[in-house]
Design a binder for these strands. Structure first.
Length: 269
DNA sequence: CTGAGATCCTGTCTGC
DNA sequence: TGCAGACAGGATCTCA
């Protein structure tokens, strides 16, 4: 589920806990992508939350001294629940308890993770990440530059978090469709115009998805914990053998870097 | 250094 | 209906 727009939407949903006191954190299952450090429980008791933000696909919750880092992995999600509502779902691994409410971390596949860091920007999982796609530094000249240096297909390149963060498998296919670029092409073979189009497409699709995420926010975090879903108007992803929305051709599915990749071979060259 | 492939985990869907 | 196998929105690690 979580690519940049979903993480951003999640951050906006829990933003209301800024300036609230985190009473305590309870870890039910420490065996996530990395074993959750026991300090996550001991060092976060009764701490004021100063800020909640996002870096790449990490949710950053700044406390007095430390920062809680949460990655949702493949299947992770946060939901807000009344503190006294003591129902649980399968794969609820952690609870962040506040005065009246609590945030629950649920992750079926346990590819997500929870860390504590004094200096998240220099945390080993964050320090080498690439630039934010919605920032001004992600522009045509930046993309041209990294494209020239790489031997990867353009899809792999934009999904590599060392280059650009936040673009996952869905938005990679979708933005390449919008830019009319075949995902199999080597990044070094892209023209300047291709790069310009791709930058615009990535920004456009991410912004649009965030906007859509916002509209389903209420649903996603409804009090009964029902898991709404982010509605996306996908052009190619998951539309194998269906008709392209722009031409008469059929969408095809291929595998790039072990990941499903969807394209219209007629629109994208 | 780069890039390809295996790997962590659970649930769901497809086909025999 | 049962069961094996493929596959799923991520990203690190190992190895050539």
């Amino acid at each position: 589920m979580p690519e940049l727009p979903e993480v951003e939407t999640t951050v906006r949903a829990i933003n209301k806990f800024e300036n609230s006191t985190l009473k305590k954190v309870i870890i039910h299952n420490r065996n996530l992508r990395w074993k959750v450090d026991k300090k996550v429980t001991s060092l976060t008791k009764n701490k004021l939350i100063h800020k909640i933000s996002r870096r790449a696909k990490y949710i950053l919750i700044y406390l007095d001294d430390y920062c809680l880092m949460i990655h949702l992995g493949m299947s992770g999600k946060l939901r807000i629940q009344n503190r006294q509502d003591n129902y649980f779902k399968k794969h609820d691994h952690a609870e962040f308890i506040f005065e009246d409410e609590k945030i629950i971390f649920n992750d079926t596949r346990r590819f997500g993770s929870i860390h504590l860091s004094k200096d998240p920007a220099n945390h080993r999982l964050i320090k080498d990440l690439g630039i934010e796609p919605l920032s001004n530094s992600f522009n045509k000249s930046y993309l041209v530059d990294i494209c020239k240096k790489s031997n990867l297909s353009i899809k792999k390149l934009i999904m590599d978090q060392k280059n650009i963060v936040g673009v996952g498998n869905i938005y990679a296919s979708e933005s390449l469709f919008l830019a009319r670029i075949n995902p199999n092409r080597l990044s070094r073979d892209l023209s300047l115009k291709d790069c310009e189009n791709l930058v615009k497409s990535i920004k456009k699709i991410l912004k649009y998805a965030i906007k859509k995420g916002g509209t389903t926010l209420k649903d996603f975090f409804s009090a009964d914990g029902s898991e709404g879903y982010f509605s996306l108007e996908l052009n190619v992803y998951g539309r194998d053998s269906m008709q392209c929305k722009d031409c008469d051709n059929k969408i095809t599915k291929t595998i790039i870097g072990q990941r499903a990749t969807y394209l219209c071979s007629s629109c994208q060259s």
